[in-house]
């Protein structure tokens, strides 16, 4: 017995959009793709593209919220390079990033490796390390303000146990920025630890066992198996850390307001000051453009370092 299967009538051939790799998408797929992309595109357009274009345009003007404004070309940029507050802010931001990023990444990786072992109260430690990340920066900063209080703070109390003289921490130009760095490192650990932990759990057990069978010790297993395996995650953590540290603001705003003098003034603080306190929006926009360029440069350097590490 034979069964005849009636073939459905072929639909009218549709126009297809050629894809670069030779595959073809039918129009309904193209439409569905754009429809699904639309919310993200709309969001990016309204909250990223328009502000970036606005900042670029404003940076070429002397707009200061008044009735009148004028095109000033690159005057804001040339003024910025003579502005000692901007120079100090840029230097403090770069210094903050150079200290906070590597130290926080190293500590996070070490803690993540520790939390990846079979130890007691693992859940408690994971939660404890993540708590600073989910706590509002203002609350964190307020607690650290008390810790650094020269009169009754915990930091000086701790020093006193060892017979050291009290320090003025945030009120001393020499220790203000390092004090902020400590808070920045501490606060940023949680997120990095979680990411590293996820990456460490994804390292191939087979490879680790093979290395062990080959007689590799702990360090050799880490250096030759674990380290390359978490390479992409390292790069992700590096990029997010660069962007995060360059955008540090709330911590500084609550704890020092950029002082004493301008010892803890960072780029975003300077931009805020110029835009919303001094009302120089054009000038602040030029500063923002420079900050974007500097972040891009740092990310570029990070990418080069990452490539060099992979090629090793």
């Amino acid at each position: 017995m034979t069964t005849t299967v009636e073939r459905p009538a072929l639909a009218t051939p549709r126009k297809v959009a050629p894809a670069k790799d030779g595959r073809k998408l039918i129009r309904s797929q193209v439409r569905a793709g754009w429809t699904l992309l639309a919310p993200a595109l709309l969001h990016s357009g309204v909250f990223i593209v328009i502000p970036v274009v606005a900042v670029l345009v404003l940076s070429l003007t002397d707009y200061s919220f008044g009735d009148t404004w004028a095109w000033v070309g690159f005057q804001n940029y040339s003024d910025l390079f003579r502005d000692v507050d901007f120079q100090a802010s840029l230097w403090h931001t770069v210094l903050y990033a150079l200290v906070v990023i590597p130290i926080s990444m190293a500590i996070s990786l070490a803690v993540a490796i520790g939390l990846n072992q079979k130890i007691k109260a693992l859940g408690f430690f994971r939660t404890a390390f993540y708590i600073p990340t989910v706590t509002a920066t203002v609350a964190v900063a307020t607690i650290w303000l008390w810790i650094y209080n020269p009169g009754s703070g915990l930091a000086n109390g701790f020093l006193a146990l060892f017979g050291f003289a009290p320090n003025r921490w945030l009120a001393d130009p020499a220790t203000a920025l390092p004090s902020l760095m400590v808070v920045g490192i501490w606060q940023g650990l949680g997120t990095k630890i979680i990411i590293y932990l996820a990456a460490l759990q994804g390292v191939s057990r087979d490879l680790l066992e093979s290395a062990e069978l080959d007689g590799a010790n702990r360090w050799q297993k880490f250096r030759n198996v674990t380290w390359p395996a978490i390479g992409p995650v390292q790069f992700f953590v590096l990029i997010t850390s660069i962007v995060g540290t360059f955008q540090v603001f709330d911590l500084v705003y609550v704890m020092t307001q950029g002082g004493p003098g301008s010892e803890t003034r960072v780029l975003v603080m300077d931009i805020y000051q110029n835009a919303f306190q001094d009302l120089k929006l054009g000038y602040a926009s030029a500063e923002t453009v420079i900050m974007m360029v500097v972040i891009a440069l740092f990310i570029g350097v990070g990418r080069l370092l990452q490539k060099a590490d992979v090629n090793d």
Partner: peptide
């Protein structure tokens, strides 16, 4: 430009 000068005074006098 007093609004700008307020901040400048705050920083530079402290320095």
């Amino acid at each position: 430009n007093w609004l700008e000068m307020r901040g400048n005074f705050d920083i530079q006098l402290t320095q």
